[in-house]
């Protein structure tokens, strides 16, 4: 089976400082990969390199495109990469405001990706937008309200709807539950898990919250100072951490 995403030796330096160094892994269709580590460990740098927001200094990110099979997205031309990020990829930002257009109604936000790939029937766009609002548990009656009138949890769910409307195959998530209170987090995680299963999505989730990866991720990578220190099945890494840093991370979780 061809991996959906194959990352080989990704390295990004900020001058003398290392962002992430020599990261390699394969992601298969339908698989969810979690990346955990403390702040500054390079997990967001790695995510941005894979999603094409940053250009890595070395390494390749090979994505199995629908039309032409495996392609290195780092060396692909910019229009092609931007086309990928509008269709087969999705990126969920930590802060919904970064991923949404706050001056545009909820329906317009969801419809933007559809219009970007050529949808030109207003009725269809609107039907699809209200369908997706329902799927992320937002009342379809609020389709013409701006995201500024939404709560934090709703904004995050709207961002997810906006990203998934074109049926992507790979979703990058950067701390999708950060800044939300626990009950809202739980609901969002439940929703995400359902969507990932239903749509057969592959996802890469960056977080510092071990509960999130326990729930969502099949496999886990632990990063520290730009390096991957441990990788394996989620339950295996969390229940029996081998590296000293992973042990520290697991033991730091507060028990209620």
């Amino acid at each position: 089976m061809t991996p959906l995403l194959s990352v080989q030796g990704i390295t990004k330096r900020y001058g003398a400082h290392i962002g992430c160094a020599d990261v390699s892994f394969d992601l298969y269709p339908g698989e969810v990969m979690g990346i955990v580590g403390e702040s500054g460990s390079g997990k967001s740098t790695l995510l941005n390199c894979m999603a094409g927001h940053l250009t890595p200094d070395a390494g390749e990110v090979v994505f199995d495109t629908r039309a032409e099979g495996p392609r290195d997205t780092v060396r692909m031309s910019e229009p092609e990469r931007r086309m990928l990020s509008r269709t087969d990829w999705a990126f969920v930002h930590q802060h919904a405001r970064d991923g949404l257009r706050m001056g545009v109604s909820a329906g317009g936000n969801v419809g933007e990706r559809l219009m970007a790939v050529g949808a030109r029937r207003y009725g269809d766009i609107r039907d699809k937008a209200s369908d997706w609002l329902e799927r992320v548990e937002i009342d379809a009656a609020r389709i013409d309200d701006r995201p500024t009138t939404f709560s934090g949890g709703m904004q995050q769910r709207l961002q997810i709807a906006r990203n998934l409307v074109t049926g992507p195959r790979l979703v990058f998530m950067d701390e999708p539950t950060g800044g939300l209170d626990v009950s809202v987090q739980a609901r969002l995680l439940d929703l995400l898990r359902g969507l990932v299963r239903d749509m057969g999505l592959s996802a890469i989730i960056v977080t510092h919250d071990l509960a999130v990866v326990r729930l969502l991720a099949d496999r886990l990578m632990v990063m520290k100072s730009g390096h991957v220190v441990e990788a394996g099945l989620t339950d295996q890494v969390l229940d029996d951490p081998q590296h000293a840093y992973s042990q520290l991370l697991v033991s730091s979780v507060l028990q209620v």
Partner: peptide, 18 residues
Amino acid sequence: SLEEYGLMHVKLYEDISR
């Protein structure tokens, strides 16, 4: 330069929805 004009239709969409 990349002819990414989906956003222009978002403006028209907003017009119709409002």
